[in-house]
Deep mutational scan, measured.
Amino acid sequence: MASQGTKRSYEQMETDGERQNATEIRASVGKMIGGIGRFYIQMCTELKLSDYEGRLIQNSLTIERMVLSAFDERRNKYLEEHPSAGKDPKKTGGPIYRRVNGKWMRELILYDKEEIRRIWRQANNGDDATAGLTHMMIWHSNLNDATYQRTRALVRTGMDPRMCSLMQGSTLPRRSGAAGAAVKGVGTMVMELVRMIKRGINDRNFWRGENGRKTRIAYERMCNILKGKFQTAAQKAMMDQVRESRNPGNAEFEDLTFLARSALILRGSVAHKSCLPACVYGPAVASGYDFEREGYSLVGIDPFRLLQNSQVYSLIRPNENPAHKSQLVWMACHSAAFEDLRVLSFIKGTKVLPRGKLSTRGVQIASNENMETMESSTLELRSRYWAIRTRSGGNTNQQRASAGQISIQPTFSVQRNLPFDRTTIMAAFNGNTEGRTSDMRTEIIRMMESARPEDVSFQGRGVFELSDEKAASPIVPSFDMSNEGSYFFGDNAEEYDN
């Protein structure tokens, strides 16, 4: 783990906690998980779902989305002020799938948001429990990260689609708070800032007046979040320049895209947490497990152990491969979309394939898809080993990566060399080191050039047997250095459309 220093740990961010010791953190995270579980059980009762239907990941996603929508204050306010045809701002819903006479049927349900809020609060001892809501947002974000390569979004903001390893959390809503900021990748933060800068260039009043003052505060806050992700002084200094700019424009845009590229080699610290679907927490609570009393951590053995003992089902389209669908969801559960496939294969105990080789589309089923041909199958979400999630980018030494994705962002704290394609990355730096950030740029390029592919990161860190909950005997895996390590390699994943 990167030293926490003055930073709060993510469990504290996750639970809005002030400084807590490890036991208190485990208890408050457990409380959050228990609340999600209780809410899910109650919703299944309301909807009269069978046990099997309640364990269907598509039903879980609909129920999670309903509660997130019920608590989305800004959108609710907007919907009330701008009524649109056929949208009731006070209601929320989605597809629920039921097994009827041996076939899967889709039923569109509609609930009062007020009623959903009441059920959620009741499951969370009367609190709004925003930490639990954020947790579900991060699960949705991790699922998107594993399912889609955001080529269009990258290109629109002047970045290269091969930089997708920097895009963790790119679909997280803005209201996801400190826990959300911690899991956002460098590219995601750059993209958010670039969008602001572009608006400022096109709209003279963007930075002016009372609204402009708020915009400015948001801009500086985002700059500080991004600065905190960088691990070298030169990158941090460049972020200070971007933040202090009187009138952010093209120079800042250039600096930010430069920094994003540099992060492929001088990786930023991005938190990883295993956020599971509500249909995993519900049955665990129903079986009598007391998360608050037992304590829970999002970055240790607990999620692995929970998945070892969970039964989750998914709808499967006619030509999809259930094992591939399982891999997709497994990666999402562990926030591992940008991790090295060699490491993932070792931990999972079966070969993890790149996205383009998977015969599976996303987990969600569109409303126009034919239910007649839908089957369902068990998702295999178990693992051979477990490993500690990392909050750091690993040290800054790398190795060759593949054509589709030119770097990785480690999820697990496991000893290995970190793949990246130096030639491709360095070719993108057209040696432009003039301007006010020239000395920093020169320094950053120097550090990137001296990074050695064969150097090892996370020295001495290994994986653990599932029986080793105290992480007492690390097993340090050895990897084939020459092997392909990137998930979005030469990829044809669908595009994420909101």
Rank of each mutant, 00 (worst) to 15 (best):
G17W: 00
N395M: 04
M448H: 05
T157Y: 01
T92C: 09
T257C: 13
I425T: 15
N59T: 10
M196F: 06
F420M: 06
M374I: 15
L358K: 03
S326A: 07
G185D: 05
G209T: 02
P277K: 05
C223K: 08
M43Q: 03
R446Q: 12
S314C: 13
S467N: 15
E469S: 05
K227E: 12
E220G: 12
Y496D: 10
R355E: 03
I347N: 11
K184N: 07
T442N: 12
N417K: 05
R117P: 00
S297M: 04
V194I: 13
Y296F: 14
L133V: 14
N224T: 05
M191F: 04
F489T: 02
A366W: 05
L47Y: 01
Y281T: 08
V285L: 15
Y52A: 15
R267D: 02
E320M: 06
S141T: 09
S141Q: 03
R261D: 08
F346H: 09
H324L: 07
E254T: 02
P474M: 09
S402R: 09
M136H: 01
R389S: 14
A233D: 10
R162H: 06
L379N: 01
L193P: 01
W330Y: 15
V312A: 10
G94R: 11
I406N: 08
Y385D: 12
G94W: 07
R162Y: 02
A2P: 06
Q459A: 02
R317W: 05
R152K: 14
S176H: 04
R305C: 08
H334D: 07
N321S: 08
V312F: 12
T442A: 06
R75N: 07
L172M: 06
G212I: 07
M66L: 14
R174L: 05
A131G: 15
R118D: 00
D112N: 12
Y296M: 08
Q235L: 05
Q168M: 09
P303E: 03
D203M: 04
G288V: 14
V270L: 09
L344Y: 14
L166D: 02
R213I: 08
D491E: 13
T92R: 01
L61H: 03
E53Y: 03
I265R: 02
S3T: 15
T433P: 14
R246F: 05
V352P: 00
R384W: 10
W386A: 12
V190G: 07
N397V: 13
S287Q: 13
K7H: 00
R98E: 02
T15I: 06
G35S: 07
I406S: 07
C44W: 13
D127R: 08
T360Y: 06
F464P: 02
G288Y: 13
R106A: 01
F464V: 05
I445M: 10
L344C: 07
S165G: 08
C164F: 09
Y97A: 05
R452N: 15
V363G: 10
E115R: 01
M66V: 15
T373F: 08
S473Y: 13
F458N: 01
V476D: 01
F489G: 02
G282R: 00
S450R: 13
H272Q: 13
P318K: 15
R195G: 10
Y289R: 09
S478D: 01
S245T: 15
Y289K: 04
A153E: 01
R416M: 06
M448Q: 03
V456A: 14
R19N: 09
R38I: 13
K325V: 03
G462F: 02
L266I: 15
G404H: 05
S310L: 13
S170W: 05
R19A: 01
R8D: 01
L418P: 07
A278S: 15
M159F: 00
L110E: 10
D255I: 03
Q308T: 13
T45L: 10
P410S: 10
R452E: 05
D468P: 06
Y52I: 05
Y52M: 10
Y148R: 02
A332R: 00
P474Q: 11
W386Y: 10
L256W: 14
A129F: 02
N76I: 14
Q398T: 08
I265A: 11
R391P: 02
D112V: 11
S28H: 04
S84E: 08
S345V: 06
Q409L: 01
G177V: 07
P89R: 06
P277E: 06
K236N: 12
A129Q: 08
Q42A: 02
T373Y: 07
Y385A: 13
E469Q: 12
G300H: 15
F489R: 01
A263K: 04
V285I: 13
S413V: 14
R441T: 08
F458Y: 14
A131P: 13
I63C: 13
H272R: 05
V194H: 00
S473D: 02
R152S: 07
T92M: 08
R55A: 10
L315I: 15
D468Q: 05
K273M: 07
E292Q: 07
E210L: 05
P354E: 08
A336G: 15
